[in-house]
Every structure is written in C-alpha cells, then in structure tokens.
Simulated scan of single mutants.
Amino acid sequence: MAERTIAVISAGLSKPSSTRLLADRLGDAAARRLIERGDTVKVEVIELRDLAHDITNNLLTGFPSSQLESAIEKVLTADGVIAVTPIFTASYNGLFKSFFDIIEPGSLIDMPVLLAATGGTARHSLAIDYALRPLFAYLHADVASTGVFASTDDWGSDEDGVKPLPERIDRAAEELVGLVTRSTRSKVLHDPWALPAGFRPNGPAGLE
C-alpha cells in the first residue's frame, strides 16, 4: 500500500470545457485503479486558465507568483501527471506550452505521464503523436504509449470502428498506473526556482 498523488493539468480556455471534462475522467480512472491496488490517492487538478497571467509574468520576469509556484510544486512532486490540452492550429495551445517552458529543465525526468487532447474533429487526433510526444520526449518524461483524443462528437461514440472513449480512457489510465507503480523516480528534486545557467535579466535562459 502506498500514498500516491496524480497531478492533472488542464489547458482548456473556456469554462466549462471538454478539455477539463476529459482531464477529470482520466484522473478519476487512474485514481480508481490505484485504489483497487490498495493505494491511497490524491488527485491535484491544475487549471492553467486560472494561471494564465501568472505564467505570462513568469516568462517575462523569471519569477513565479505564489499560486504558480504551488501549481508547479504539485506537478514536480506528483507520482504521475495527466496532461490535457485542446488542439489549436494542429498542435497544443500556447498556454500549455508556456507552462512547460517555465518548468526547470530536468525536473520531469522519468515522470510517468499520460497525454490527452481535445479538438473539434478526429482529424486532429494525430497531434498527440507529432506534437505532444516530442515535447515530453525532450523533457525525458516516461510517457504512456496510449494517448487519448476526444473530438466534439466523440463522447461515447464507436463510429467507424474507433473504440469508445470510455474504453480508451480505461486503457490509458491502466498504462499510467503501471508506469507509476514501477517508477523509481526520486522525489528529491532540483530546486525549481534556482536560476538556470545562462539566465538573462529578461527571463529564463533561452527565452526572449
């Protein structure tokens, strides 16, 4: 029996949003499987919409607000992360990318991660593989092989032979739980607020 924390990141811009709905479904599914294994689980939901101004200010100044600092700490100290973004112009939205831009390089090494996305049509479903996976490969996260995409009319649909959304959610959650239970990632992390090498006054290294 272990105490587990799952950080669920939602980059939806509207309230309510299908992105948050999918994030909640995935978080619930992962928590349910961990509980079935005898673990105690805490799910921490991080709405990036509520942190948009803080994220922008951090990009400009290199310093986080207390609210943003708390959100990043929840991510870095979690046993696993569920990251969900709407797809804009064939990729993740700017808010999603900006949040991960301000996380210290190396902080997500070997972190178990489940990737998911929402969009208007199933034509955007490949964005998980060609946009999100390269980002988390760069971050050296341990990403579940199954990503979950939900289009506007995808909730509960098995049209054209596509597995129903609940089935895909269950499969992805099971994979994430497997990564979490096998993970040897240390919770002794680098200080996320240490200034990286090459820091310049106008923001973190590499940001202009």
Results as ranks from 00 to 15, higher is better:
residue 166 P to M: 09
residue 77 T to I: 08
residue 168 R to M: 11
residue 72 I to G: 00
residue 167 E to C: 04
residue 207 L to F: 12
residue 59 L to N: 01
residue 51 L to I: 01
residue 130 Y to M: 07
residue 15 K to Q: 03
residue 97 K to D: 03
residue 150 A to M: 03
residue 132 L to T: 04
residue 181 T to V: 11
residue 38 G to D: 15
residue 57 N to A: 02
residue 73 E to R: 12
residue 28 D to A: 13
residue 143 V to H: 06
residue 125 S to R: 15
residue 178 G to P: 09
residue 7 A to C: 06
residue 1 M to S: 14
residue 38 G to S: 14
residue 6 I to S: 01
residue 9 I to Q: 03
residue 170 D to F: 04
residue 148 V to G: 01
residue 168 R to I: 09
residue 109 I to Q: 07
residue 22 L to V: 05
residue 59 L to I: 01
residue 37 R to I: 10
residue 150 A to S: 10
residue 48 L to G: 02
residue 126 L to K: 08
residue 108 L to H: 02
residue 3 E to Q: 10
residue 118 T to Y: 13
residue 113 V to F: 10
residue 184 T to D: 15
residue 185 R to L: 07
residue 25 R to W: 09
residue 122 A to D: 03
residue 162 V to Y: 04
residue 168 R to D: 10
residue 126 L to C: 11
residue 179 L to C: 12
residue 61 T to E: 07
residue 28 D to K: 12
residue 129 D to A: 05
residue 122 A to M: 03
residue 85 T to M: 04
residue 47 E to I: 07
residue 165 L to W: 12
residue 23 A to N: 11
residue 86 P to H: 10
residue 64 P to Q: 05
residue 86 P to I: 06
residue 115 L to W: 06
residue 102 I to G: 02
residue 158 D to A: 15
residue 153 D to K: 13
residue 143 V to G: 05
residue 98 S to H: 04
residue 3 E to Y: 09
residue 59 L to R: 01
residue 13 L to P: 02
residue 112 P to R: 07
residue 88 F to Q: 12
residue 141 A to H: 00
residue 97 K to F: 05
residue 32 R to A: 13
residue 12 G to P: 08
residue 101 D to R: 01
residue 173 A to S: 13
residue 65 S to K: 14
residue 152 T to P: 00
residue 131 A to Q: 08
residue 11 A to V: 10
residue 30 A to H: 03
residue 60 L to E: 15
residue 83 A to K: 05
residue 7 A to P: 00
residue 17 S to Y: 05
residue 44 E to V: 02
residue 199 F to G: 01
residue 14 S to K: 15
residue 90 A to M: 14
residue 5 T to Y: 11
residue 77 T to Y: 15
residue 155 W to I: 00
residue 26 L to T: 02
residue 172 A to F: 03
residue 5 T to V: 13
residue 145 S to E: 14
residue 27 G to S: 04
residue 51 L to G: 02
residue 42 K to Q: 15
residue 43 V to E: 14
residue 168 R to N: 10
residue 7 A to F: 04
residue 207 L to H: 12
residue 143 V to Q: 04
residue 165 L to K: 07
residue 120 G to Q: 08
residue 186 S to M: 06
residue 120 G to I: 04
residue 12 G to L: 10
residue 45 V to S: 01
residue 35 I to Y: 14
residue 139 L to V: 11
residue 155 W to Y: 08
residue 14 S to G: 15
residue 42 K to N: 15
residue 140 H to R: 13
residue 177 V to N: 07
residue 51 L to K: 03
residue 177 V to S: 07
residue 119 G to V: 02
residue 128 I to K: 06
residue 120 G to T: 09
residue 155 W to E: 00
residue 155 W to S: 00
residue 166 P to F: 12
residue 123 R to A: 13
residue 167 E to M: 11
residue 128 I to W: 09
residue 172 A to Y: 06
residue 3 E to D: 05
residue 173 A to M: 11
residue 122 A to I: 03
residue 2 A to H: 06
residue 104 E to D: 03
residue 187 K to N: 14
residue 11 A to K: 09
residue 203 G to T: 01
residue 29 A to V: 08
residue 20 R to V: 05
residue 151 S to F: 07
residue 28 D to H: 11
residue 71 A to I: 01
residue 205 A to P: 00
